[in-house]
Design a binder for these strands. Structure first.
Lengths: 191, 191
DNA sequence: GGCGCTATCTACCAAACGGTAGATAAAATA
DNA sequence: TATTTTATCTACCGTTTGGTAGATAGCGCC
């Protein structure tokens, strides 16, 4: 990537971050199965061996990518749910969430591709996604949709629509994500 | 698979069909990238070389799998759309579609995993899914939802919800697909 | 029963893969 | 400047991969 004349030596934290960023983009583009160690390394101007000095295996790199996204993204969302909001606030919260996703297309694609790959029980991230997504749904059901007559059904409804809309938006960026969301929300949060 | 004592010789059409069925299930379980030629072959009790006698490459096998599903599944749906139905009929048609999908979980998983993999422009099935899904959406928009004030938006809404619900159902089969669908339909087809 | 066709097999190959071992060089410290 | 530390590299290994070449055997037809 950089026109390194020979060898570029970075402090550990910095190099790790650089690798994780590059890996995130690569996985977003081609899925985890679709990217080789060599490719991960080349993307930040190193060799396989150099990368493996920071992550002991390709699989460990994947886990690190996922955990990084968690710490970056989840922390500031949790407290938003206290106290349990009314419908209008819930809608506003979700709209904020939608808007943030809209601005991070490649990250959305990472999660979409990976979580589909990981439907296979043999996939290294299978367990991660199972628990991660179940937790997310429970949280939405308990806090965000506490006002709803059937929070369990509603949570599945909401997540299904958002997941599906993301998927279709990734396939065809002509889709007006925000407008579609507001349409849905009009019905979903109606009295 | 079969306890073939030595060598099992089948008529071409029969063998091709057997291979395609097995491949469909394997891809459904692990995605296309996740299954090797050897695995495809072994699943119907052959060797790689034997399989490659029927499909010249692994990629050609994938295309054949997709085209087979098209011919099996699409033909009898098209005429259902003539003439353009009213809302109640449209809902009934979609319910039928949902019910059929429910009965073919592994086929649904095949499409879900593959179409996510194929978000990568370098994927062998990328073009296939782009055109296939766009056509489907157009058809729904023009015929099935002709009665709707905004058929374009509605088509995206409907497909997004169904895709997302499928995805979540594959992740967690505790989800009551049919009930969720009827919930959604109550709102979607409301006056 | 003998013959031809071809579906299938055994054996192999080159390339790509994840990962390891040991050499090298860039900083930090003294 | 000399020494230590360690981030990075070069070179390699064993395995798995998609695919090929040529031998073998099951079936239809005379």
């Amino acid at each position: 990537m950089t026109p390194a004349p020979g060898r570029r030596r970075l402090p550990v934290a910095e190099r790790r971050e650089e690798i994780l960023q590059a890996a995130t983009e690569l996985i977003a583009a081609s899925g985890f199965k679709g990217v080789t160690l060599e490719a991960f390394a080349a993307a930040c101007g190193m060799t396989k061996a150099g990368l493996l000095h920071h992550f002991r295996s390709r699989e460990e790199l994947l886990i690190a990518v996922l955990e990084r996204r968690d710490t970056l993204d989840l922390a500031n969302v949790v407290e938003t749910f206290e106290p349990a909001p009314d419908p209008a606030t819930a809608r506003a919260i979700m709209s904020g969430f939608v808007r943030r996703n809209l601005a991070q297309r490649s990250l959305v694609q990472l999660y979409t591709m990976l979580s589909a790959e990981a439907l296979d029980p043999a996939h290294p991230a299978h367990a991660y996604f199972r628990t991660r997504l179940a937790e997310g749904r429970t949280m939405i059901e308990r806090y965000l949709l506490a006002w709803h007559p059937r929070p369990d059904r509603a949570a599945v409804d909401l997540l299904a629509f958002l997941d599906g809309l993301q998927l279709n938006w990734l396939r065809d960026d002509g889709i007006d994500f925000l407008a579609q969301w507001e349409d849905f929300a009009d019905r979903f949060f109606a009295p």
